[in-house]
Design a protein around this nucleic acid. Sequence first.
DNA 1: AGTCGCTTGTGAACGTAGGCACAAAGTCGC
DNA 2: GCGACTTTGTGCCTACGTTCACAAGCGACT
Lengths: 217, 217
Amino acid sequence: MSEGRAIPEATVARLAVYLRVLGSLSDGGLSTISSEALANAAGVNSAKLRKDLSYLGSFGTRGVGYVVQVLREQISTCLGVTEHRSVVLVGVGNLGHALAGYAGFGSRGFRIAGLFDADPRRIGEGISGLTVQGMDELAAVVAQEAVSIGVIATPADAAQEVCDRLVAAGVTSILNFAPAVLSVSDNVDVRKVDLAVELQILSFHEQRKAAGLKAVL
Amino acid sequence: MSEGRAIPEATVARLAVYLRVLGSLSDGGLSTISSEALANAAGVNSAKLRKDLSYLGSFGTRGVGYVVQVLREQISTCLGVTEHRSVVLVGVGNLGHALAGYAGFGSRGFRIAGLFDADPRRIGEGISGLTVQGMDELAAVVAQEAVSIGVIATPADAAQEVCDRLVAAGVTSILNFAPAVLSVSDNVDVRKVDLAVELQILSFHEQRKAAGLKAVL
DNA sequence: AGTCGCTTGTGAACGTAGGCACAAAGTCGC
DNA sequence: GCGACTTTGTGCCTACGTTCACAAGCGACT
Ligand SMILES: NC(=O)c1ccc[n+]([C@@H]2O[C@H](COP(=O)([O-])OP(=O)(O)OC[C@H]3O[C@@H](n4cnc5c(N)ncnc54)[C@H](O)[C@@H]3O)[C@@H](O)[C@H]2O)c1
Ligand SMILES: NC(=O)c1ccc[n+]([C@@H]2O[C@H](COP(=O)([O-])OP(=O)(O)OC[C@H]3O[C@@H](n4cnc5c(N)ncnc54)[C@H](O)[C@@H]3O)[C@@H](O)[C@H]2O)c1
């Protein structure tokens, strides 16, 4: 069974990166690639890359490398993005507008099935071929379009409520851009993106560098 | 020496979250908090939280908990955000506009020192009190405003070039929103945010759930 | 056919992170 | 002032992730 072994979380994250890199490489016309070369392009160690790929099975050729097209298919299958997966986006403000207009959505295996907002003034607005709908429509769209992923781009104080509505509608994975901790039942996955947290981590390392410098003086 | 032990990367990421949570709690008027309560609010295990805080020293009171204000100061100091840290943003397109207008920047310890874009049509545009400048101005602003962090929100194919210019100007930490792997020298830190990667990780787990369901049938 | 060089796939060793469980240390009530 | 109760700080153990190093496998060239 190719799905027998459990794939580590860290590996899954890198698989997504490999897939992206393979995309540009195959656009460049390359048909096979060695673990060393792909690892370089993805910014990781080649041993790590090989171990990551080994979780999917072994379809490299020793002495040659991997066939780019085969790798892409294997990784896509593993990540479940062989066909476009539907997502809904809730909160069409500053950030929501940018996300709604983002081309990378479509090219990386996802389709926006609906845009939603609570503000009546936003409802009806058209963004890149979609119309913003009211929250009342959410459940129907999720059910009808088999949406499994919801993206939250509302203010933090609305995030938990929106999350609850998404889950109630049948969404089982959530990507949260609001700076708020969401509580959900065990069968729902949540990932968060917090700009300020990322900056603060960088800031921490800056702090460190400065301290090290001082120690030298 | 309070900075004696090395703080694990994972802990640093959580410290930023604790800081955010403590912010809303102290706005709510709370003056002390137990590890249990804070852990709940931050969505982590209380033992983990205590271990995280222990890296900064030990300033909790047994039987009582932590003084919110003290904790905030300690974490802020550790993360290097006691005073506002300056950042520059390069690439004022869809995403860049949203970032430039983001209030969370200021409230979480950062100040946008400049907005930059290569497109002459964007230069001169005003966004939330700042004017978009040309790339020629970058080096001067970085030097003058002591900028240590650069944010890249340009298309992927421009990211490496922009990164190089930022580093040449003196920036030593980079937050990259473009789906591209950046190569930098060892003294520069890079963090990336890739929407599609996040979605693909969620997609993987959806895949898993679906497979598990099939196994039951 | 045999040999040589290259690249994969993985076992084993190491390092990092998570979580339990409990002694130490403090507060609060009496 | 004392005892009971609460909560911290941490030692230890397990699990996960990374890296090295190399045998096994494949193709190409002679
Ligand atoms: N703008 C950024 O660059 C940025 C960066 C990082 C994080 N964030 C976070 O993303 C979120 C959105 O940011 P923004 O700048 O787009 O804010 P915004 O105020 O421009 O947009 C928020 C949108 O959510 C809608 N909304 C509010 N309550 C709602 C509800 N209960 N149900 C449905 N929709 C609701 C509002 O009508 C509005 O359209 C915030 O939590 C912010 O902290 C933003
Ligand atoms: N829009 C989103 O929601 C979103 C989400 C995730 C990631 N991203 C990524 O963020 C990046 C920006 O996305 P966007 O939607 O804002 O794109 P965009 O095309 O709207 O904006 C890009 C901006 O970068 C500027 N630019 C181009 N080359 C430059 C250079 N060499 N130096 C300086 N500036 C330059 C352009 O003039 C433009 O203003 C892209 O890499 C995209 O993949 C966007």
